[in-house]
Write a protein that binds this DNA or RNA. Structure first.
Lengths: 147, 147
DNA sequence: CTAGGTGCAAAAGGTTTGCGGTTAA
DNA sequence: TTAACCGCAAACCTTTTGCACCTAG
């Protein structure tokens, strides 16, 4: 279930791109908000079905595309393989552990966006900057850090 | 055709991971070095066939995987869709133009790697850092900047 | 001789599309 | 009422795999 605040946020974001807040879109949004990992479309499909058994995988893909367009969800493609999705929120990088396959959010200092942007030569205008790390995590991190 | 220098580089890199410098691997390496864009496996297949008509797409994939493992080639996954490949070389970021679909290399200052690495919390050990920008390029850039 | 490589064709993901039916402004 | 949306199944595209043949150490 969505809080009133999140529902309004969704409603406004969708309306701003001329689309309707349907049951399915609301549900997918609530599912992706509920657990802050980086699920694939397929994983979201499985979770979404628990409360909405009739939803289809194609609809999940459609809803996700819509949510990404509405800037409510970020689509992350680190490795080859399925895209992963996360609720947009603050500026952060991703760390992909090669041992566990888990993805962790790395909080970044506020200035980083401007810093990285300043490295672009003239004529390049960045809408979005994606920073991602690949490597290994110490065992204790895996449990303490939100993934 | 590969220069003597590049051929030796390839030979050493492959031997270091216990693999042989075959005709196909040499050819794919030379094709990817020749034109410094960011081709997909399929595009490389097309280019490779011009001089080696019998090579197969599966072999192109196999060779690319090998070259990536040997650290001679970098595999880049920015958007969903086919992976792109580039000869490894120096530390650089990628800029993906949403209008033209082109990918540009962005040269980074040397310190950037250490700077970005320093932002990781304890317990995270990065092997590789990937920085990518998505946005638009001014018209004149498209022709002047190497893509 | 034999482990590693190649080419082919088929299969396997992951995602998109077309279409008939449904739903909400 | 009508444009947007959904669910289903089929199509699609990229990549991987299995297997028979080949080739260099």
């Amino acid at each position: 279930m969505l809080t009133e605040k999140d529902r309004n946020h969704l409603k406004r974001a969708l309306e701003s791109i001329g689309l309707r807040p349907t049951r399915q879109r609301e549900h997918i949004y609530s599912v992706i908000l509920r657990k802050r990992d980086h699920p694939t479309a397929d994983e979201l499909f499985a979770r979404a079905k628990e409360e909405m058994p009739t939803i289809s995988l194609a609809t999940v893909y459609n809803c996700l595309e819509t949510l990404v367009e509405a800037d409510l969800v970020r689509q992350v493609n680190l490795e080859r393989g399925p895209s992963r999705f996360c609720p947009n929120q603050s500026q952060h990088a991703h760390f992909h552990c090669r041992k566990t396959g888990k993805i962790f959010d790395i909080i970044l200092p506020d200035e980083i966006d401007a810093d990285l942007r300043s490295m672009l030569p003239d004529g390049f205008e960045a809408e979005h900057i994606e920073l991602s790390y690949t490597g290994f995590t110490a065992a204790e991190v895996t449990s303490s850090h939100r993934n």
